[in-house]
């Protein structure tokens, strides 16, 4: 079977997800899977093991006792290894500190890696603006694909307007 993404290499990563009863299957080669952020094989030769270790288990490197660089939150001192053991963060800054490593974990828990709900008003404006721009860009792409160029031009102008506002810090949207 060929990789669904590149259609060139053999698919070696087979991913089945059932979230809210919705069943999806993906067949990817190692490289495309890595690019999509589904699994990170770069430092990790034990890919099968990393798939099998439980949801919150530390990655195989730490299990093997090699921790090349100790990953730790500077604010509260919690290490990534400790996080893996107790399954709890130490403070809000841990999310930043552990960075991309959280992506597969949270995807496996929630089936998503992007918050779409409400936000504190003080975070407001800027975030909302950026999200609006994202949505408009997707809309623009759809319109172009459907060859609805007049509508697409309108959306493009909207994006420009919002982007200029975003560089002003998004304050006007509050």
């Amino acid at each position: 079977m060929l990789c669904q993404e590149c259609q060139k290499r053999v698919a070696t990563v087979h991913l089945t997800r059932i979230i809210n009863g919705e069943y999806t299957e993906q067949h990817l080669c190692e490289q495309c899977a890595k690019n999509k952020g589904e699994f990170d094989f770069s430092h990790n030769p034990f890919s099968l093991q990393s798939l099998l270790t439980g949801l919150m288990n530390v990655d195989s490197q730490t299990l093997m006792g090699f921790t090349p660089k100790k990953l730790q939150c500077n604010n509260c001192g919690l290490t990534y290894a400790q996080f893996g053991q107790i399954g709890r963060f130490g403070c809000s800054e841990c999310y930043q500190a552990f960075g991309e490593r959280l992506v597969p974990i949270l995807r496996r828990i929630h089936g998503s890696t992007q918050h779409v709900g409400s936000e504190p008003r003080r975070a407001g404006g800027a975030v909302k603006l950026r999200r609006n721009i994202e949505e408009l860009k997707q809309q623009l792409q759809r319109l172009v694909e459907e060859e609805k160029f007049e509508q697409a031009a309108v959306v493009r102008d909207q994006i420009k307007k919002l982007e200029s506002r975003a560089t002003d810090g998004g304050k006007k949207d509050v």
Partner: peptide
């Protein structure tokens, strides 16, 4: 912005 409200438990 990405993770929403940050909590103790993921």
């Amino acid at each position: 912005e990405r993770w929403g409200y940050l909590t103790v438990c993921p």
